[in-house]
Design a protein around this nucleic acid. Structure first.
Lengths: 193, 193, 193, 193
DNA sequence: TATGAATGAGGGTTCATTCAT
DNA sequence: GATGAATGAACCCTCATTCAT
């Protein structure tokens, strides 16, 4: 029951924060959206920041799980990257509100929020490791993985941003379908030997 | 009196906001950093939000000026893009604090801040128009300029983010020198026919 | 907890506002007088204006209750007016601070405060209706009830003002006892010999 | 020239204060309405309060002049009162904005403003002296002049209030014409049939 | 005298957090 | 665990007043 309640609050917080932004979202409004009282929030989260952390942590965990699955696959590293991006976009499509938060609240509070930082730095790191493997395997031409992985993630997030703030659901889904293809194509050719 | 007060406040605000983030920057602290009283801020800005707007507006104006200069150049559109990115990175290098703000405070206040929105949407639009010309000129392969320009700007900003939050100045400058080369290379090959 | 908080704040606000005037009364000082924190005020009132509104609303409700009681009495309408004025002065006598506010803060805020307006317009209206009945019953000579009811209420309030700002309690009470007699006499038969 | 400028400011202040109320009128807006700069106001008035004082002082001086003229007339005291009220209403009719201020800003700032107090207490005192004379001359029945003069002034001001806040000029003038007649009649002979 | 930019104390309001029930 | 009234520090903004030009 208690696990469900934390989830309940997380879900409600996503709606509120995606709509109003983190700093403009009050704990009261999150509580109201969750159908609990403010006090209850503090039984599951140490403070308001931790709610946002938890949202990012949850998403990072999802992405990490995807990476873990991909790790054992016997396909070229570059293809793993493509598969990851597709999975990423699929999740965004399933929950665009989370997408809004991921691209908007990333820098909240001095980067002092560990969960947020872990996400923002963690994804590019994983991409970087794939790139490194890909370079070593001679699949792609040499590059600075730190810079290029950041660039890739930045490109991805920018496209997510466009899609996610598109209000018309039909158009948004079209973008989210088309984007990974365009993106992967753009990235792949860029990395082509 | 010799120094323009509005500029004085803008400069001070950049330091404060870059360090603490917009929402954690108080008008008092901005005033203190500028060596004026709070009241003076409100002689030049309608409210706190407008300070941030003005920062973005100023940067957008710089970028627009660069574009204007490039427009008349008789070089391939793709090369214009490279020149723009180089100019962008040069400006960031000259004032990394502004860079921090550009990548961090982009989504402040519901995207309701016109100056911020103008910047965030304006740059990709200009890139998109260069891409369009480039496609028409047969310089690059066809793509969705909307998506790809967003991707490019996202990639650029992500790299700016890394550089700009690198505390060691030497390392930061190295990154800012290396990044445009890597990036342009990444982008160009990606767009190669 | 036993005492209703909203009432507690209303009572404290009456003391503060009567003493310093509405515009010079700070929410902090009202909170202090009530023995609560500022925040608590805002749990019961939307803003400072609403405190004043509530004070007037409360008094209007008292007066309306008196009118309601008088309605069913089988006495001449003019006598009802006398009874009302006596009740009014009795209430003022019981709480002179409220009296001070009623005569001083009447026009606060552009007449935009509904509670205040309701009071200032409501009492004369009720008086006017009594006058109308009285005229129809042939008890008094015809007159413009709108003007005369305003005049009566104005006369009453002016006398309340004198009494209520008399610092010596004995003298004040003497005035408040004498005033309704003089007033009703004056109203009933004017200065005519 | 300097006398004219003080008048200029007084006139502008009347417009602003009548419209927005004293506490909501800024010195800036008064200066703007007068077509001078804030600084200039402080060359003619020690502070904002003094502007309001001056407005009341000016009106009191007008009323005092009327009384002075009436003093030497060889008519019954009660008739002098009637003449005074008529003159009062005539002035209000000529400048309703001043009327608004007279009835609204009377209690501003703790009654601490001498000019305001002088007006609010001065007029009833003059009325009281007329009543006293009238009683002594056996023209009217005995009464407490303090109370009755306050009542009369209160009645007058309440009617002024109604008239002055009537937006339609035609209707306002009709009220201002009708009111003194009704009022004087009411005062002279009350409601008695 | 006139100006109006600069001042900064002060005030209304918000909202994350606590804790007694 | 759940509640939600109470808290009060903190913040944005206003505006009467000053004073150098």
């Amino acid at each position: 029951m208690s696990v469900n309640k934390k989830e309940l609050i997380r879900t409600a917080a996503i709606e509120v924060i995606a709509t109003k932004g983190f700093y403009r979202s009050t704990t009261d409004s999150i509580a109201a959206a969750a159908g609990v009282s403010v006090g209850t929030i503090y039984n599951y989260f140490k403070n308001k920041d931790e709610i946002l952390e938890y949202i990012f942590q949850t998403e990072l965990a999802h992405r990490a799980a995807i990476f873990a699955e991909l790790k054992d696959l016997t396909v070229p590293s570059l293809e793993k990257l493509q598969l990851f991006l597709e999975a990423h976009f699929t999740e965004i499509k399933a929950n665009p509100l989370v997408g809004q938060i991921l691209v908007r609240e990333r820098q909240v509070g001095h980067d002092a929020l560990d969960g947020v930082r872990a996400f923002v730095e963690g994804i590019p790191q994983k991409i970087a490791s794939l790139l490194q493997l890909s370079i070593e395997a001679g699949e792609i031409k040499p590059c600075n993985p730190l810079i290029i992985s950041a660039a890739i993630f930045g490109a991805v997030e920018a496209v997510v941003r466009i899609a996610v703030f598109t209000v018309d659901p039909e158009e948004r889904n079209r973008l989210l379908d088309q984007a990974p293809v365009e993106l992967v194509n753009f990235i792949s050719s860029g990395l082509a030997k």
